[in-house]
Amino acid sequence: MIKVDNVTLQYSNGKGIFDVDFEVNEGQVMGYLGPNGSGKTTTIRALLGFMKPNKGACTINGMDCIKDAPEIQKNLGYIPGEIAFLDGMNGDEFLKFMCDMRGTKDLKLQKQLLEMFDLNPKGKIKKFSKGMKQKLGIVTAFMHDPEILILDEPTSGLDPLMQNRFIELIMEEKTRGKTILMSSHIIEEVEKTCDTVAIIRNGRIVKQSDVGFLKSTQRKGFIISTDNLESAVQILNGAGFENLSVVGKNIEIFVAVDQIDRLVKTISNFTISDITFKSQSMEEIFIQFYNGEEE
């Protein structure tokens, strides 16, 4: 179990995290969301024992993240937000180094992971592409079969195919009872894998709930093309759809999921030449969510 108990960790510039309090129960996957600079990595620093909180404490399986860090690490897999490997190493040298440092003898899982992510670890890491480095980071975090995983933006730099592979990996680990904390920017990833989410903003947790909340908050976007723009807007406004904008010859409209049916019925009242679906990005959800907060 991962537990962040009322933690405040402030940097000298005044930024940091304040009264952050959450737990990830055994066998659960929690998504940790928030814009850049909101405190996700700081929370992870406290959990890894890199920084000591000014107030509160982090524990993993009941052990203190500062004092018992070496003991915790035996069963922890970690992907740093900004991966930097040791200078001048080859990929396979690095994997061997990490196995030796951890005392991992069984290399079966490592081999499976390398195959799964289609990664050939030979050659200088410095020459690897960003995606390859990320894959190497993923293999390093999972290859010793840890019970707990702390993943800081684990899919950054991966192409969509590999992002899907990663989602498969998380699903698989979840069925094997792993406890996972994962910060992310990709909404599909969180929706598909996480049981709960916590949203952090300016160093404070602003929302904590099960993942269904994301679905209900998320709005669906439609881009509707029509020959008679003016009357279309009039009809939509008349039906109570205010949240729309005219972009070029198209109408862009965002609605909550429970409004989709009404929208479709409304737009059947005018001639549509084209319609496209537009998914909302995590940032747009944040903005919408924060605006809601401020109101």
Partner: peptide, 14 residues
């Protein structure tokens, strides 16, 4: 350059 994180993510104390 942050690579020290990998040393500390092994069961070895600082």
């Amino acid at each position: 350059n942050s690579s020290f994180a990998y040393l500390l993510s092994t069961p070895n104390s600082r």
